[in-house]
Write a protein that binds this DNA or RNA. Sequence first.
DNA 1: CAAATATAATAGTATTACTATCAACTATGA
DNA 2: TCATAGTTGATAGTAATACTATTATATTTG
Lengths: 223, 223
Amino acid sequence: MNTILSNLKIQVNEKIYVKDPETSPLGKKIVEQSIFLIDEIGFDNFTFKKLGEKIGSNESSIYRYFENKHKLLVYLSSWYWSWMEYKLVFATTNIVDPTEKLSKAITIVTEKVTDDTNTEHINEAILNKIIIAEFTKTVQTKEVDQENKEGFFLIYKRVINRIVGIVKEVNPEYPFAKSLVSTIVEGSLHQHFLTEHLKTITDCNESVSTTEFYLNLAKNVLR
Amino acid sequence: MNTILSNLKIQVNEKIYVKDPETSPLGKKIVEQSIFLIDEIGFDNFTFKKLGEKIGSNESSIYRYFENKHKLLVYLSSWYWSWMEYKLVFATTNIVDPTEKLSKAITIVTEKVTDDTNTEHINEAILNKIIIAEFTKTVQTKEVDQENKEGFFLIYKRVINRIVGIVKEVNPEYPFAKSLVSTIVEGSLHQHFLTEHLKTITDCNESVSTTEFYLNLAKNVLR
DNA sequence: CAAATATAATAGTATTACTATCAACTATGA
DNA sequence: TCATAGTTGATAGTAATACTATTATATTTG
């Protein structure tokens, strides 16, 4: 996986950006540093002006890459889920036993992320923290239907449906495969959030535990 | 329940408001109409100025009740979960069989809400729509730890832990009761959202189905 | 009726979320 | 190597947001 990812470019829907940030040093810096700044001050307090100051660049230059901060967050999310899809595919390819395949998939998608050193300008561990704290904000807007039509959430839906396929291999009779998987994926982000901030309503306390909970859940539901 | 609720006042943590909106006609109007306006234009586009125009009142008057729009949303959420707790308690009291009790509880908490005509100025059906679309925004902020300390989310956590108690009656051996319940409660809001906006990653399509999915899930996990 | 309280109207500030313009610098290719 | 296209930076400006402060006017209560 290592060598392959370093040659592969994560593809993000062109409609999300004004200019592809991967095509210039400034673009890469915007992406790289926005991850740190959003993690640091939170998306709600994040502005292009502050990011400009952080990277020693002008606010107006950032607008040449992203229409607004919402689009930047959608970009980061798309990148994340696209990267997640690679991890998923590589972890499950050539595994014949559906149950084992599903376990690997659930593990990939629910465990805490460590930095993938193959992508130079993106720190996946921090990006994962952002996804945990802010991902629902990319979807939960009044513009969701419009943006869904434009394909902003395709990658996310593809990740879900890839796992749905595995669930159906494990148990073709189970009638709620899609809801189960979307519950696991979204729910694991939520459990990670609770582990950090509202500990009294979760049993998860370290990275492995959230995964354990969902592995156990899936096993019980699909047996 | 009807007669009792019409006499009971839903209690909301005093730190959430500047002045209790239940104590004046203007306060009630602010709460009543904010629900309609947030539903209509979304929380992100909602401002006190727009609300003032809608209710024929001045922006500055609204600030005398709520510090900012975030606090107003926290107020609406607290009200909602408090009301949900009443429904829960009344639906499960005097039921001896834990399994039946849990089924009632899961049904209450996952089903689509219809207006409760006993509360004059609050339309619960619309409020439920707001909770589905915006609830995570009340929690997912940089101030979550501070606000949690001040007790802003106590009611929500109490609802979760009340159901956790029932889960433990059903199966005292199950090691993830808290995570299961928080997954169900938060997850059902998410499934309702997907049903409306991202239909390709959910199996739920009408009110009953989300409940069915989670009843089935809980049954399989706890047997 | 007086005093206290609630509300409305107006004004003002700092920040946000942009857009527009123009100058400077950089890379390319003829 | 020069011309030119494209990128970035600097500055300015606008409308909206998120408030705070002040004063006037109603309304309630004792």
